[in-house]
Amino acid sequence: MSGVFGSPAFTRRRTAVGGLWVIVFCLLLVACGGGGEDFANDPPEIVVGQDVCSGCNMIINDINHAAAYWTTAGEARRFDDIGGMLGFMQKRQEERASTWVHDVNTGEWVRAEDAWFVMNAGLVTPMGTGVVSVANEEDARALAFDQPEALVMTFDEIVTGIAAGEVKLQMGPGLKEE
């Protein structure tokens, strides 16, 4: 019964295949996690036209207004409108590992803590909240259009203002303030 299965060639091939499986397993293990909160260093991926907003369950179709965050449990929350995300955060009160917004002018991801936010009724956003973000204060002031009711704030200021009831999110059609 030595035949083919007992041959040195078969044994070498079996050892090589076994070694290959060990390498593949290790690569999968590294790719799938074990990295602590490394996931929070990058924004959650948003597939435009496919991913659904965590707040309103509508498909995200405009990346420049989209926002997202990671929970500390590693769950991604995606939104079609920054104002929608802010309202969702206020209601859910879950711990976030990182929060991300897009610069409305460039479409580039920006950590929310580094961005500037503009609330202005004249700004058109997917859910009608009028909240957009940009990477710098100068661009934020330009988007405010010198309108007295427009607000230019940092992330901390807008989150704190909403929590204190000093900043009210306007809601477009289909949304209501709660």
Rank of each mutant, 00 (worst) to 15 (best):
G87F: 02
G33W: 04
V101P: 02
E95N: 09
L27E: 10
G172D: 08
N41M: 12
C32F: 01
P44N: 05
D80G: 13
E178A: 07
G6F: 04
R14M: 15
G122T: 10
V47C: 04
T15Y: 10
F79M: 08
Q50G: 08
Q93A: 14
G84N: 08
I23E: 10
R77V: 08
I46F: 01
A66L: 02
Q93P: 09
V22C: 06
E177L: 12
L27A: 13
G84Y: 01
T11H: 13
G172T: 06
T129P: 02
M85W: 01
C56V: 01
A142P: 03
G161M: 05
K176R: 11
V124H: 06
A67W: 00
A31T: 11
Q93W: 08
A67P: 00
D146Y: 01
E37L: 02
G18W: 11
V152I: 07
R13G: 14
I23Y: 02
V118I: 12
L86D: 05
L151Y: 07
M171H: 10
P8H: 11
S2N: 15
G87K: 10
F5H: 15
G172E: 07
V22W: 05
V104A: 02
W70L: 05
M171I: 07
L151W: 07
F25P: 12
A115V: 03
F5R: 14
E149Q: 13
I162H: 02
A164S: 06
V104W: 00
D38E: 13
F39P: 04
I63W: 02
S2F: 07
E166Y: 01
E94G: 07
G122S: 12
Y69R: 06
G49S: 05
S98K: 00
I59P: 06
M58S: 11
V47M: 04
M153A: 13
D103S: 03
A97Q: 03
L86C: 05
R111H: 08
E37G: 02
D146C: 09
L175I: 10
A68V: 03
W21I: 15
I158R: 07
Y69C: 07
L143Y: 01
E94A: 09
V131M: 07
F79V: 06
T15R: 12
N61I: 09
H65I: 02
A9E: 15
R141E: 11
F39Q: 04
A144I: 05
F39S: 01
F79H: 07
I158M: 12
T11K: 14
C56Q: 06
W116A: 09
P43F: 02
E177A: 13
A9G: 14
V104E: 01
G165H: 02
F5A: 14
N105F: 10
M153S: 10
K91T: 14
A150G: 07
T106A: 06
V118Q: 00
Q170R: 13
D146N: 14
V134M: 06
P148T: 15
G18S: 15
G83I: 04
V132D: 00
G83P: 04
I60D: 03
G55N: 12
D38H: 09
A115T: 08
V118M: 06
E157S: 11
E95V: 04
V110C: 04
G49C: 04
N41L: 13
A16R: 14
A115D: 07
A40C: 05
W21Y: 14
W21A: 12
A140F: 03
D80Q: 10
W21F: 15
V17T: 15
Q90I: 07
V4D: 15
V47Y: 04
